[in-house]
Design a protein around this nucleic acid. Sequence first.
RNA 1: UGGGGCGUCGUCAAGUGGUAAGACACAGGGUUUUGAUCCCUGCAUUCAGAGGUUCGAGUCCUCUCGCCCCAGCCA
Length: 572
Amino acid sequence: MEEENKKGHFIESIIKQDLENNKNDGLVTTRFPPEPNGYLHIGHAKSICLNFNMAKQFNGTCNLRFDDSNPAKEKQIYIDSIKETVNWLGFDFKTPFFASDYFNDLYEFAIQLIRRGKAYVCNLSPEEMRQYRGTLTEKGENSPFRDRSVEDNLDLFNRMKNGEFKEGEVTLRAKIDMASPNINLRDPIIYRVKKATHPRTGDKWCIYPMYDFTHCLSDSLEGITHSLCSLEFEDHRPLYDWILDTLATPCHPQQIEFARMNINYTILSKRKLQLLVDQNKVSGWNDPRLPTLEGMRRRGYTPEAIRNFCNIIGVSKKDSRIDMGLLESCLRDDLNEKAPRVMGILKPLKVTIENYPEGKTENLSAMNHPQKEEMGKRPISFSKVIYVEQDDFMEDPPKKFFRLGLGREVRLRYAYLVTCTEVIKNAKGEVIELICTYDPQTKGGNAPDGRKVKGTIHWVDANNCLDAEVRLYDRLFKDENPEQGNQDFMENLNPDSLEILRSCKLETSLETANCKTIYQFERLGYFCQDSVDSQASNLVFNRTVTLRDAWAKIAKKQPPKKQVNPNKKSKK
RNA sequence: UGGGGCGUCGUCAAGUGGUAAGACACAGGGUUUUGAUCCCUGCAUUCAGAGGUUCGAGUCCUCUCGCCCCAGCCA
């Protein structure tokens, strides 16, 4: 269920008020403007949801517009990925817009600015430019080229366009105020020479407009009413407004800033994510541990869960760091509703049922969802030898441990009640097999005499199961805020963020699994087949998220009992 | 030391002068053939701090403190 935020956040209030005042003829048009220089992450999802939802809520439209004004960094593969991801998230855009489609208009606007005496070609080198700009506390100085005539500027700008200058040699600058306390207003560059091939315009241009010039005009050209962006652009708003006020433009959109998303134990910076990929700390942009939307998709996150999360966290101007637990809660919420249940054993422990007939196989019936009859049932095979989870047996169990132990009776889910009669160990003293007896009267799991068993555990038929690799993921970083202070976030990586289990046993119904279905492995968590590495001959499953685990909490509070699973290597 | 922002529960977040919503987390309890789900219950005498205005302040005023952003020919 996606929740509507009834009261509405501050941006919603602004839009409602604008509508009441008939500010834009009752229209609401927004845009999501990614630069195609990387892949989208969960932080972008917040902006996508905000922009598309505002448009939808007020019967408006939202444009997907690529802010592609820097060919040095942008690539077609990113454009493709972004389109695909926005669609996957569940948002429809007719045809994408591109700032590069406005290069001609933008060029004309620049000429208009020059004609109005509000822009000039400047020959200052990058270093000189920095010196003239001043500092945060000191005013800047006027460029010696500031007072060129309109004719000279027009000629020079034309020659810039024709490729007569090298990169860094000249720029076109807006003539505003070198003494402004806002550095963005100290004659900002609006065009620079860049001899790079653009993914869409090829080599048609060798000068490209800067963000501040491009963005506001693109917004205006598209009839955007509310231009929503993140907090760091607050200082740019005066420039956004100056350009639109100075030029003859179709309309003057309102820029509104909101706080970008942060989540603990991860990073949401394209640059830093890029470093993780480049230094092979992860397998790629779609590594399931990454907060990239492609990574999350591969891990098993659903668009519904992500959208709901974005709605729930709200929109404000406060710097915030959201608990990863909230994201996971949204995920479980969605998956609990739709994930079919199956059984799988991550760390197998062989169990032989001594009084079960040799060679016999039964087909038992299991529900695909305990609360949803309509999701149907499936057969699961049962025979003399099965596997259970190593964690579900303890030789010397602590109080409140409801699972298997010597002499204890538990229920095998959907099967029989079994009692452990013998523990077999290897030379090292590790438990390698359990001998149990079963009660034939308890088929399905209920005892005719009404006796109760506290524990129900999952199992898989050893003679009829699938072998699989299962990848368990944990938080990528050790610290809540990996970027805190001046510490290097790379040093903060959690060395245990990926655990690969290679001898997992899954029930046979998973043979026909596909990457689109997220399953619940009962009592363990949600899992999905890996879209990249899984093959029929070598099944690979990803753990999307664990189930809530009350036992883990109890066990933690339990008085220290040296009893550890003997099959595990003892840890320090 | 210039400019722009922000400070309400552990984390998000409502609140628009009339007596602190909700969610996650956490703590108890109930149901349960998943220690899951579900269902109850509890969880800010107080809104960064100090003054002031007012019958009444998280909301208005003043000062103080803390945090974030800005000196790319990146977006």
